[in-house]
């Protein structure tokens, strides 16, 4: 192998390492921040080909009444910012805007997946939670599941952990 090829090979290996580290860095920074919210959800339990079992989390804030956002004339694929307002132990949806909501304590960024006549469906990138093989059913059968989500200053969200029937859930426990 020529010297040039050796250098290029080293570059490719370094790029691979950087991709892996880069994927972790942004999310790690969000998780190390101190802007958590607890969201209500209803889980189900499918499986991914590469990453194994996960629970699908259907959030209360994922389906919003259209009257909150009708002036925005939203289309599927549009990015939106949803204000989160604390209501007891959990956070619920407030105003919906195309830009970060002014004066809001917490804002979560989402993407419109459906805009019907009465409701708008929004995804936030936190709709799945990966669990060890065979453990998804514990979450699926629980009476009440909440999700603690870390949010960064741009509204990006990463799941920190689940609260199953009032207790912080240990997936490996």
């Amino acid at each position: 192998m020529s010297r040039r090829s050796r250098v290029l090979l080293a570059v490719v290996v370094v790029v691979q390492a950087l991709v892996i580290v880069g994927m972790a860095t942004g999310r790690e920074l969000t998780l190390r921040g101190n802007r958590d919210v607890t969201l209500q959800t209803r889980p189900v339990d499918p499986r991914d080909l590469f990453r194994g079992d996960y629970v699908v989390l259907d959030y209360e804030i994922a389906t919003l009444e259209m009257n909150r956002a009708e002036r925005l004339s939203l289309e599927p694929g549009d990015a939106v910012f949803v204000e989160l307002v604390q209501a007891g132990d959990v956070w619920v949806a407030g105003r919906v805007e195309r830009q970060p909501v002014d004066g809001a304590e917490r804002v979560i960024r989402g993407t419109v997946v459906r805009a019907g006549a009465e409701t708008v469906q929004i995804e936030y990138g936190i709709e799945q939670y990966f669990v060890p093989e065979g453990r998804g059913h514990v979450v699926e059968r629980a009476a009440e599941v909440d999700v603690v989500v870390a949010i960064d200053s741009d509204g990006g969200a990463v799941i920190r952990h689940l609260i199953v029937d009032g207790e912080v859930w240990d997936p490996h426990g």
Binding site: M23, G52, E127, Q128
Partner: peptide
């Protein structure tokens, strides 16, 4: 293994499926 590593990090940091 590089692909598996990407999936491992995506799993650990709850990337969308």
């Amino acid at each position: 293994a590089y692909g598996a590593a990407i999936m491992l990090v995506a799993q650990a940091y709850q990337y969308p499926v």
